[in-house]
Design a protein around this nucleic acid. Structure first.
Length: 603
RNA sequence: GCGCCGUUGGUCCAGUGGUAGGACAGUGGCUUCCCAAGCCACUAGCCCGGGUUCAAUUCCCGGACGGCGCACCA
């Protein structure tokens, strides 16, 4: 069985994830996380929050998932997400009608034209299907927007959309967030939440869905002054797959530390490089296999026009760990983009608020500035309703070209018409002003993580087989930090005395904050296997010795190796917590307690 | 959206124009056993709609869902 099939089967059978609404036939692109999957995902989110929010000193917000249309006009999603598809009547291929028109004619931005007009252009330029050459004239063009539309309020209401990414919720609230940050750059805002895309064709199960969870950080920086704390991750080694290597048939990975990647210019942005390092460490911590992981640079055509540099984190999910970058099945699990001031500038242009930060200079600066201060008592009577526009034009001209005010009169263009006024009336002068600082539109560095795909990766990378006493075993080698259940507790046999001890241990461990499973059904081997399959790192078994000897001891079994140690119940909770916490290991138990000699063989 | 293939207990499969069988899993019991053991019993299924037929899980058409390829993935 392929890894993908085995994982899907395990996910369904053991409650990690499965298609939603199956009782009603299901809907493509929607998945429900069952108890194990929801716990795993929750733990991944908590680990992300710990690393990217808490440890970076950032702030997390929670914005609505439904936002009004103007937000997406500003962000570009309304146009950019809108595809005009025309389907060929001969071969059935779908193509972007706007692209075809742009290629065949000198029409630009066909995307912004109304559908009937594009249909006419297709006919007028006798555009043929790029795949089979059949004429496309007369075919109807389907409009498809990847955003889910909804109506806000009763009646016709206000047009709204489910957000296609969590990021806009941060950008749009920037004016308040910068106040909260007391106008000091740099600062970072995170959000973990659902986003929605009405995918044409959802595929690959949980990897590409119509509703999914993102964990995003928007790091706002001053492009001139703010540098990342690069030294913290300087020595983290990265497997990089730069664009030039991707375009070369014999392309190879470039292994470099964060410091080297910056020095050699492989990663253009220091901020991006910093977060590649942070992410690499984090992925390692939650259990992503470094041999099946890489950072891939976007190819020039793939990159959004505003992104100076963009890298994706990718994981291999079919079981192939190869030095050949073209081998294996890679999925994108995070993106790291330097977005410049694109997002905030867009919202500044469309929205009402101030999307800049005022940065004070160390010393106030005296600057000379050419200004026009038109005499409105003259302009008013002369130009009537246009007086304001004339004054604005004069002020703009003064800033742009002070020399225009050297003559007796000055001419500006208002509504395409030349308007001449006396220079005296324009009241032009060079003004000396003291400036305490300047308004800066912050640049944005955006590490954006797909939580569902990360969960899938952890299952794929943790998935393992071995033989225990000749019997095949499936186990999930999940990191203790993200495993759905911390520890399982079993009475070795159905015996009231053993069960009582086991029940007490369950209560104690739960009181200590651990996630505990209890299972007394079936023989002990069967119960170990159940827990192995859902990735429970530790199992505690109460046996006869537990109730016969003093002090009371129990065995603790390690999921991956099946090794066991005998630990006094009094010390159990503290010892288990030690193993489970970030950086902990079963090795410490092996070193501190008697190993239980069993004749169980593992191969 | 298009093309090809598929859909049978929880999971994975077999099979049939007269409504089904296995394996594994699950539940109860015996066994009291530290790695899916054994024995007994039990639970549980033909994706949906239409057509052909005396009769459809089976054949035909459509749909939904899934897999793969194409397109799409801002």
């Amino acid at each position: 069985m392929s890894d993908a099939r085995a994982i899907t089967e395990l996910a369904k059978r053991r409650g990690f994830f499965f298609g939603s609404n199956e009782a009603y036939g299901g809907v493509a692109g929607f998945y429900t996380f069952g108890p194990e999957g929801a716990a795993l995902k929750r733990n991944v989110e908590a680990a992300w929050r710990d690393r990217f929010t808490v440890r970076e000193g950032n702030d997390e917000i929670e914005a609505p998932t439904i936002m009004p249309e103007p937000v997406f006009e500003a962000s570009g999603h309304l146009d950019g997400f809108d595809d005009m598809l025309v389907e060929c009547g001969e071969c059935g291929e779908s193509h972007r009608a706007d692209h075809l028109v742009e290629d065949a004619s000198d029409v630009e931005e066909a995307e912004s034209l109304p559908i009937p007009e594009v249909e006419e252009l297709v006919a007028e330029y006798e555009i043929a299907c790029p795949s089979c050459g059949a004429a496309l004239a007369g075919r109807s063009i389907e409009e498809f927007n990847l955003m889910f539309a909804t109506t806000i309020g009763p009646g016709s209401g206000q047009q709204g959309y489910l957000r296609p990414e969590t990021a806009q919720g941060i950008f749009v609230e920037f004016p308040r967030l910068k106040e909260y940050a007391r106008n000091k750059l740099p600062f970072g805002v995170t959000q973990i939440g659902r986003a929605y895309r009405n995918e044409i064709s959802p595929r690959k199960g949980i990897v590409r869905t119509r509703e999914f969870t993102q964990a995003e950080l928007e790091q706002f920086v001053d492009p001139d002054d703010d540098d990342p704390p690069l030294d913290r991750v300087a020595d983290v080694s990265l497997r990089l797959y730069p664009a030039d290597q991707q375009e070369d048939p014999d392309g190879e990975y470039v292994e470099a530390t964060v410091a080297e990647a910056v020095e050699e210019g492989i990663v253009a942005s220091e901020w991006v490089a910093y977060y590649l390092g942070v992410a690499r460490e984090w992925y390692d911590r939650i259990g992503v296999d470094g041999d099946r992981f890489r950072f891939r640079q976007h190819l020039p055509g793939e990159r959004a026009h505003y992104a100076a540099d963009c890298w994706d984190a990718e994981s291999e999910v079919s079981g192939v760990a190869s030095a050949d970058p073209t081998a294996g099945d890679w999925i994108e699990i995070a993106g790291f983009a330097y977005r410049g001031d694109y997002d905030l500038s867009k919202h500044a242009a469309h929205g009402d608020d101030d999307f800049t930060v005022f940065e004070q200079y160390d010393e106030p600066r005296t600057v000379e500035r050419a200004v026009a201060d038109p005499d409105m008592s003259v302009l008013g009577p002369e130009f009537g309703g246009r007086a304001g526009d004339v004054a604005d034009a004069l002020r703009a001209l003064a800033e742009r070209d002070p020399s225009a005010f050297e003559g007796e009169t000055v001419t500006v263009e208002v509504d395409g018409e030349a308007v001449t006024v006396d220079t005296d009336v324009a009241n032009f002068r060079i003004e000396e002003r003291t400036e305490a600082g300047e308004h800066v539109t912050p640049h944005v560095v955006e590490p954006s993580f797909g939580v569902d795909r990360t969960v899938y990766t952890l299952i794929a990378h943790g998935y393992g087989h071995d033989l225990i006493d000749g019997e095949e075993r499936t186990y999930l080698s999940l990191s203790p930090e993200v495993a759905p259940t911390d520890v399982a507790v079993f009475p070795l046999v159905s015996d009231a005395a053993l069960e009582e001890v086991a029940d007490d241990i369950v209560a104690d461990l739960r009181a200590a904050g651990l996630s505990v499973a209890h299972d007394d059904s079936g023989n002990i081997g069967r119960r170990y296997r159940r827990q192995d399959e859902v990735g429970t790192p530790l199992s505690v078994t109460v046996d006869h010795e537990s109730v016969e000897e003093t002090p009371t001891t129990v065995t603790v079994r390690d999921r991956d190796t099946t090794a066991q140690v005998r630990v006094p119940v009094d010390e159990l909770a503290a010892e288990l917590e030690g193993v489970l916490e970030s950086g902990g290991s079963f090795e410490t138990l092996l070193a501190g307690y008697d190993r239980v000699e069993t004749d169980v063989t593992r191969s």
